[in-house]
Design a protein around this nucleic acid. Sequence first.
DNA 1: CGCGACGTTGATTTGCCTCAACGATTGTGG
DNA 2: CCACAATCGTTGAGGCAAATCAACGTCGCG
Lengths: 190, 190
Amino acid sequence: MHPNFIKHINKYIELDDNTIEVLNKYIKPITYKKKEFLLKEGQICRSIYFVVKGCLRMFFINDKRTEQITQFALENWWISDFFSFMDNKPSEYFIQTVEKSEILSIDALSLEAMLKELPQMERYLRIIMQRAVAASQLRIKYVHQLSKEEFYIHFCTSFPEFVQRVPQYMIASYLGLTPEYVSELRKKNL
Amino acid sequence: MHPNFIKHINKYIELDDNTIEVLNKYIKPITYKKKEFLLKEGQICRSIYFVVKGCLRMFFINDKRTEQITQFALENWWISDFFSFMDNKPSEYFIQTVEKSEILSIDALSLEAMLKELPQMERYLRIIMQRAVAASQLRIKYVHQLSKEEFYIHFCTSFPEFVQRVPQYMIASYLGLTPEYVSELRKKNL
DNA sequence: CGCGACGTTGATTTGCCTCAACGATTGTGG
DNA sequence: CCACAATCGTTGAGGCAAATCAACGTCGCG
């Protein structure tokens, strides 16, 4: 199975060979090309997704008919529309590959079955979710304490390799800026 | 023990009498008066807090030396600085009661011991954290799709009882508005 | 009563957006 | 292998939502 995935779980809980084998039953690996959709607005988000390799983005269409990116997912990140996933409500989001990507997916029923058979995975997911909450807290803090200019600079210096990897207008959208303004900022800040 | 807390856990997992008794060993109830601090900037956030009754706010001091509220916690909500809690790093936040409050707290060591003795609680916490992630996703979406005016109106219509309960300037801070602007909005919108 | 906490009002300023037009680069079908 | 269209980024003029600043009203409470 996917060694990166195993390694990731193993960072948080003990894994034996049998567990890995059982896990295998429930996890579905899929390879996507660039710009393929894993979820479209109106659909119920039936799975959570783990990025083994590649990059996903999550976005919605706002009132001005433009794409508003709310999240990226890189290697070793989970992504989903959790409201849609938990309550079986139609999603207002799209999830799409930014580049060719290897994804592991697990749907709600498989997840429940897996957790019943491997209750130790509850702990893994609890820790993952807790870290996601911590990340959200940090993001909210930055939004409130930094100006848009500072926010952009902070992002670029924090994730220089990522900024290379995705188009500028996606960074702009994620940070809540217009592409034009980002252009202005780049000129100003060398 | 605190029936609201038991009821809350019971919404997500099965609880027997023995489990409740064990839980009791690890949970520490404290009653706070209005405006007391559970956490101050620079301290390590050693516990997670469950609000049985009352209201907490979490905030930091920004560059302009004003309080910036990032979260509220009402009845049946958990709150903590999870980065500080998980990694034992000094917090940049304050957590303070908005009104007289009954709080249950559990520190990191007790939590680990409790989860070892009651592994079924991993599931409860996993679900709670998952819901917190979903709530964060929703909040980020609102921030991006609504103007400040729309955001304020949306908040007031979504939580009318809450708006009565806390001072206006705290709502303003939480939403990222100035008190002056909120004042203007209230006049305009009846 | 008097002070501090909270809310309001109006004048002024500004950070960032909007709109429109124009390069540069990429990729794709003929 | 070129033509032509998308796609992506840049530039500049003009506008507006929301902040800032300063001053004043009001209420509750010690």
